[in-house]
Design a binder for these strands. Structure first.
Lengths: 107, 107
DNA sequence: GAATGCAATCGTTAATCGACGATAGGCTAT
DNA sequence: ATAGCCTATCGTCGATTAACGATTGCATTC
């Protein structure tokens, strides 16, 4: 029942292997950075990375925000490809996260 | 006259050596990420990193934006500590950039 | 089938952002 | 001094964001 290995199933849509430079990469880095460009979303990512939270209600408990607001932040993170969700809850999307790190690293 | 070594003089205000975790670090990462969370600002950073541009007018030439808009983007980057300016023009602030990379790396 | 609990979505509001033109400040060269 | 450039700032406008409460949708449990 431990969701450790199965929390987030095989990538249905792995972050496209586009170049690390050029207008497209700039656009992508812009989107990824914008997604984490809010303290609440940074906190959410950290909670997920420390596995201190998995489901939305746990995150709500940790933040001074309404449930609908947290849900919206999760939506933004998911849409950006930094988080993924399954029936077991939320977890980091290491593809998106890795892509972000790679894009930033070469600046 | 080459501005390579003197482009950006000694740090007047080196990015404070705060922790990489905790609410303060989250806040800081949020601010840094927000600053690069726009395609135009990403492009500016890349131009500066490749030394393809140094002064505002050169950047304006490279982007489909008005001078005032570019100036504003530069202000945002400078305020975030990702860029610094001197009489020689703009250049990357490696302190801020390094801090950003460090903060992202541990997520 | 009804009730409960959790999460997503809707609708609204205030605040912030992005972009621009116009203007002002500061140099440099005439 | 003035004329010309370059950049920062101001004022404005529309678009986007952040936050909330209310509502809906979906399971699970009674």
């Amino acid at each position: 029942m431990d969701c450790e290995p199965t929390c987030c199933p095989p990538e249905p849509d792995p972050e496209p292997l586009t170049a690390l430079e050029g207008p497209e990469a700039d656009e992508q880095l812009g989107r990824l950075a914008k997604a984490i460009g809010h303290p609440a979303r940074v906190r959410i990512l950290r909670l997920l990375s420390r596995k201190e939270a998995r489901v939305c209600s746990q995150i709500v408990d940790e933040l001074p925000l309404a449930q609908s607001t947290v849900s919206e932040h999760l939506r933004i993170l998911k849409e950006a490809g930094l988080v993924r969700s399954s029936e077991a809850g939320y977890c980091l999307n290491f593809d998106g996260l890795g892509r972000l790190k790679a894009l930033i690293a070469i600046i």
